[in-house]
């Protein structure tokens, strides 16, 4: 497969999978934000999701493939790139790039680690068992997802893990969003600064929106 070996081909795959993953976190975020509409809302949402059955599994499979492609090529490209620049300058001055751009691999790996933690936490209920047990109680005939989340985020440690991970997501997106616009070829020179600016704003939005949830519970803005 030419696409899988060429420099620009893999860049395109990174961008396509990146874009789809942004789609995923958008949907995920919308669902999560229902928590602010009260306990009933998120419980209904969770039940609805579960009732979809095989569709959820297909969706999960697609997500797995997207993540695998994005992660594999991300790591591969990073290794190639560091091999291409083995020696460093005694003095290094960067003017155009950003911390976010230079730390893509690290923020990416943080997000990956978080992904495992997140799955173990809210999907497989294997960490913080005392808090996640709440999901087994039925409220109005539905699993009490709301309480599970709320109790989890009452723990400062768990909240901080989520907040740090979402900060990494923000950094990853702040480079990734404008990057995919460039990679798809939508840049005519004058638009570039705007795209970079908008990319950062959107990244900030995602970051803040995701962080808002643990923060809301941690500081008891939303209560059980």
């Amino acid at each position: 497969m030419y696409l899988l070996t060429s420099s620009v081909g893999r860049k395109q795959l990174m961008a396509v999978t990146g874009l789809l993953l942004v789609g995923f976190i958008t949907v995920h975020l919308l669902g999560n934000l229902s928590i602010f509409a009260g306990s009933e809302a998120i419980n209904i949402y969770a039940e609805k999701l579960k009732s979809l059955g095989p569709v959820v599994w297909i969706f999960r499979l697609v997500m797995l493939v997207l993540f695998l492609v994005h992660i594999t090529f991300g790591i591969q490209l990073t290794l190639e790139n560091s091999a291409a620049s083995p020696e460093t300058y005694a003095i290094k001055q960067r003017t155009k790039t950003t911390f976010a751009a230079e730390s893509m691999i690290y923020t990416g790996l943080i997000i990956l680690a978080f992904l495992f933690y997140h799955l173990l936490h809210f999907t497989f209920h294997l960490v913080q068992t005392d808090a996640v047990d709440a999901v087994h109680t039925l409220v109005n005939g539905r699993p009490d997802v709301f309480s599970m989340v709320a109790k989890s985020f009452n723990s400062a440690f768990v909240s901080i893990v989520y907040i740090i991970s979402m900060a990494a997501l923000f950094l990853h997106l702040s480079h990734g969003l404008q990057s995919l616009v460039q990679t798809f070829g939508f840049n005519n020179g004058t638009s570039q600064d705007k795209v970079i600016g908008i990319g950062k704003l959107v990244a900030i939005f995602y970051g803040l929106a995701y962080i808002a949830i643990p923060l809301a519970f941690l500081f008891h803005i939303v209560k059980i």
Binding site: K11, A84, R94, T95, T97, Q178, S179
Partner: peptide
């Protein structure tokens, strides 16, 4: 392709 074969890295949009 030649770029990669010659040992250059890939572009990751740093714009340096």
């Amino acid at each position: 392709d030649a770029l990669l074969d010659e040992g250059f890295g890939n572009c990751t949009n740093h714009y340096e």
